Simulated scan of single mutants.
Amino acid sequence: MTATPTLLAWSGGKDCLLALQRLLADPKWRVVGLLTTVNRNYSRVAMHGIHRDILLAQTAAIGLPLIEVLLDWPGSNDAYEEAHAKGLVEARMRWPGIRHCAFGDLFLQDVRDYRVRQLGRDNWRAVFPLWGEDTAALSRRFVSEGHRAMLCCVDTQQLDAAYCGREYNTALLDELPPGADACGERGEFHTLAFGGPLFAEPLKLRRGESVLRDGRFQFTDFLLDDAPPGSTRLDVRG
């Protein structure tokens, strides 16, 4: 059986890492590259606020090429979709015949439907290797298999800000309040993956400052350990 080439939408967090692991283990698929939306103004991964240099370190450690979808801030959803479509064109130029893009989504049907529609307009198909999995079990598997991640963003309307900056491990999972999804699928938190079985070596990170944005979202900055202190400021818009 010939493996079907696919991109993987890469946020830098744990769910896309697990999606990558699942795809790599399935002979049906061949992951050829990662696709990431980057805030052009602040050189950070959109939503998660991860520094671009950390993103590049992740992809180097994982060993996959990266296509960056660059967005201006502030920007509209139409601008996002136009930039995303350009990213798909670039992917087709690099890997002729590719028509699939995978996502780490777990159970939000409206998000899945949007991705299917968005890709369908460009004659692409969406793939969801983790769809419908029990998130409590999935979170424990992530930890038990040795994957490593930090919480880089917390929605303080759903979870206490003190969780931001902590490692995503058994202790944290044990402390999550009732009703909080263990994988943060409802937006309770976002993560930064930095090590584990898919990394050639773990990223060396140091914790930076924490800030509250829009009166709601707590972000904790992480820097590569070889970055000079004071070289960046935490601004994660977009």
Rank of each mutant, 00 (worst) to 15 (best):
T2V: 09
T6E: 02
G13E: 09
G13D: 11
L17V: 09
L17K: 00
L18M: 14
A19R: 01
Q21N: 11
R22T: 14
A25G: 08
D26Y: 03
W29P: 05
W29A: 01
W29N: 03
R30S: 14
R30Q: 15
G33D: 13
L35G: 07
L35Q: 03
V38I: 11
R40C: 09
S43K: 15
S43H: 15
A46P: 05
M47Y: 11
M47W: 08
I50L: 11
I50K: 02
H51F: 10
R52C: 11
D53F: 13
I54P: 09
T59G: 13
T59L: 12
A60M: 12
A60D: 14
I62G: 03
G63T: 01
L64N: 09
P65N: 06
P65M: 11
L66A: 09
L66K: 13
L70A: 13
L71G: 08
P74D: 00
N77C: 13
D78N: 14
Y80S: 10
Y80R: 12
A85T: 12
K86C: 14
K86T: 15
E90M: 09
A91W: 10
R94M: 10
I98K: 05
C101R: 07
C101A: 15
A102L: 06
G104D: 01
D105L: 00
L108E: 07
D110V: 10
R112I: 05
D113N: 12
D113W: 01
Q118E: 15
L119I: 10
R121I: 12
D122W: 15
N123Y: 13
N123V: 12
F128K: 03
F128S: 06
F128P: 05
P129C: 04
P129Q: 01
L130C: 01
G132L: 05
E133M: 15
T135N: 03
L138Y: 07
S139P: 08
S139E: 11
R140E: 11
R141P: 10
V143L: 08
V143G: 07
E145V: 13
G146Q: 02
G146Y: 05
A149N: 04
M150G: 10
M150S: 13
M150R: 12
L151S: 04
L151M: 00
V154M: 00
T156I: 00
L159S: 07
D160T: 11
D160P: 08
Y163A: 07
C164V: 08
G165A: 06
R166D: 11
R166Y: 07
Y168K: 08
N169I: 09
T170M: 12
T170A: 14
L172T: 03
L173Q: 03
P177R: 00
P178T: 13
P178M: 07
G184Y: 09
G187P: 03
G187M: 04
E188D: 04
H190F: 00
A193Y: 03
P197D: 07
L198F: 12
L198K: 03
P202N: 00
P202Y: 10
P202I: 01
P202S: 00
K204Q: 15
R206H: 12
G208A: 00
G208Q: 02
G208L: 00
E209W: 04
L212T: 09
R213N: 12
D214R: 14
G215T: 04
R216A: 07
R216N: 01
F217C: 06
F217E: 03
T220V: 02
D221N: 11
D221Y: 02
D221P: 00
L223Y: 13
L224N: 04
D226F: 12
A227P: 03
P228S: 13
G230T: 04
T232P: 06
D235G: 09
D235E: 13
